[in-house]
Nucleic acid binder design. Structure first.
Lengths: 205, 205
DNA sequence: CGGCTTCTTGAACGAGCGCTCTAAAATTGA
DNA sequence: TCAATTTTAGAGCGCTCGTTCAAGAAGCCG
């Protein structure tokens, strides 16, 4: 927001976006709590004072990282698939198949940032706990909304529990992220994805 | 091992098993790293010195907790189902259906201890990371072994990837544990379980 | 009883945490 | 040129963490 504005005072000596990217990578690898401010400043090439001036505190920095990740190709593939595919089945099939390839991609830390980071947050930090739980629930709500639309369109039997189906796919995706972190290959994860799709409760198309 | 033996010296003033149970509950609720030794000593009703004398350090205590949990009814239902059910499908069906009821049971912290605790361990502690990864892989190996037996018995098509199928069920179970922690009910989780079973790659029996 | 052994207590250790503060440096508008 | 503003570097704050230690207490054995 406040970039390229009012240029009074000493100019910032580092690239804010690059620093954010470095922080993203670190949080992605280690999770929220396991990443210390000291490691962050080192990876970002700045001193604590600069970090706190530019990003607020560790919590705000992490939230900005998550936000930024959600806009990146790797973080947005779920939303894109839901928007672009004509049927719900096609959307979920694409999500699972893409996840199987993206999650173990060595170009970035394994798995999904939000799932991995969420995974390493303790009960102590209630704020962060709530933030990440809301993120999870928002994802499930988006899944469920798409499935209900499909149900109204006749793609899905009326008896199918859209909430349960959303939770099911959420669980599978989370499991695939974890497996990728444990070293599973794209080939393995693709098999898992195909299996998971077999649970689709109607004739596929 | 060393219980009720050589009774020289001042006798222990607390019940070791009860203390272990208290520690189990705390680790189950909070995860490994989020549980501090201070909280442990308070819950166990002992002082740090006694904890370190009786259990080694925090790491050893946690490993003993996991071991103990694995022998408890709640922790052993997976192994029991695999042993008792005649077919692989029956075994996995029972595992998922029981998990759906056990995980959200308010008689104990939600979800599976090993999954939840594993969830809250950071990359920092390499020892613990390895310990928990081995635990996960051991579980998947057990799944896979049962599935291969089923394949040889003709319960499963030759083409079915037993490794992928094991990873798939592992992912679903992990997802159900997480959902239970997020407040999912037994009814919801049961729906998820039934959906997951629909992925079974052969005629069911 | 007097050793011997083991456990309990409570204080304290060093390390690491997230975060803040001060002073100097770099840029602006007047 | 100079005051105002903003960022930088780097030390250090208070706190919590897992762990240890010294001293005393409580039981055994001879």
């Amino acid at each position: 927001m406040t970039d390229t504005r009012a240029k009074r005072g000493r100019p910032r000596a580092f690239d804010r976006a690059a620093a954010l990217t470095a922080a993203t990578r670190l949080f992605w690898e280690r999770g929220y709590e396991a990443t210390s401010v000291g490691e962050l400043t080192e990876a970002m090439g700045i001193r604590p004072g600069s970090l706190y001036a530019a990003f607020g505190d560790k919590k705000s920095l992490f939230k900005e990282v998550v936000d930024n990740y959600g806009r990146s190709p790797v973080g947005a593939f779920v939303r894109v698939a839901l928007e672009e595919e004509p049927t719900a089945f096609a959307a979920f099939a694409r999500i699972l198949r893409e996840a199987a390839v993206i999650y173990p991609d060595p170009a970035h830390p394994a798995g999904c940032l939000t799932i991995s980071a969420a995974t390493n947050v303790t009960t102590q930090d209630a704020d962060m706990q709530a933030f990440l739980r809301d993120l999870r629930n928002a994802n499930l709500a988006v899944f469920e909304a798409r499935l209900r639309t499909a149900q109204r369109a006749g793609e899905l039997p009326e008896a199918a529990g859209t909430r349960a189906l959303a939770a099911y796919f959420g669980a599978v995706i989370q499991g695939m992220s974890q497996r990728a972190r444990d070293g599973a290959t794209a080939a393995e994860l693709t098999e898992t994805a195909e299996l998971a799709l077999a649970a689709w409760p109607a004739e596929r198309r």
